[in-house]
Amino acid sequence: MMEHSMSKTYRIAKIVSVYLLITGLGFLVSGAYYTKMISHTGTDPVLINLSGMTHFFIGMTILVNHFQWKKPLQIAVTLLGLMYTLKGVVLIVVPELGLQANNNPAQVPAFMSIIWIIVGLAIGYFAFFGKRYEKN
C-alpha cells in the first residue's frame, strides 16, 4: 500500500516541481510582463473565472488522487493541492478578494521567481531522487 501511495506522490511531485520551475523561470525572464499583469486592474471577469476553474480542477485532481500526510513529500504535494483548490475557490466565489492580492507588495516577480524556483527545486529533488533514500 505504501509503495503505491508513494508512487503517486512521486508522479504528482514531478509534474508540480517542473511547473513551479517553469513558472519561476517565467517570472525571472519576463518580469516586466508579469509586473504589468499583476498590477492590471479591471480584469475580465470571464478570465478570472477561468483561472479559478483551472486552479480548482488542478487542486481537486491532486487531492482526489493524493491526500497523504505521512512523509514530507506527501505533505508538500497535499498542501500544494489544497493551495490550488483554495485559490480556485476564492477566484470563483469571492473574485474581488482574490484580485486584492494583486496589490500585495510580496507579488514582485523577481521575489516570486526565487520562491517558485526554490520550492520547485526542493520538491523536484525529492520527486526525482528521493526513492534512493527511502528505507524499505
Rank of each mutant, 00 (worst) to 15 (best):
K36Q: 12
M37P: 01
M37L: 15
I38A: 06
H40Y: 09
H40G: 01
G42V: 05
G42P: 00
V46E: 03
V46L: 12
L47S: 05
L47N: 02
S51M: 03
S51H: 04
S51P: 03
G52E: 04
M53S: 03
T54H: 00
F56L: 14
F57A: 07
I58G: 04
G59E: 14
G59R: 06
I62Q: 00
I62F: 07
L63A: 05
L63D: 08
L63V: 02
L63T: 03
N65F: 13
N65S: 11
N65L: 15
F67L: 07
F67C: 09
W69I: 14
W69S: 10
K70P: 02
K70M: 10
K71P: 03
L73C: 11
Q74C: 02
Q74I: 10
Q74N: 01
I75N: 12
I75G: 07
A76C: 02
V77G: 12
V77F: 12
T78R: 09
T78M: 08
L79C: 10
L82N: 08
L82G: 11
M83F: 07
T85L: 15
G88C: 12
G88W: 06
V90T: 01
L91D: 12
I92C: 15
V93H: 10
V93Q: 08
P95M: 07
P95G: 04
L97P: 04
G98K: 06
L99M: 13
L99F: 00
Q100E: 12
A101D: 08
N103R: 10
N104C: 11
N104D: 09
N104A: 02
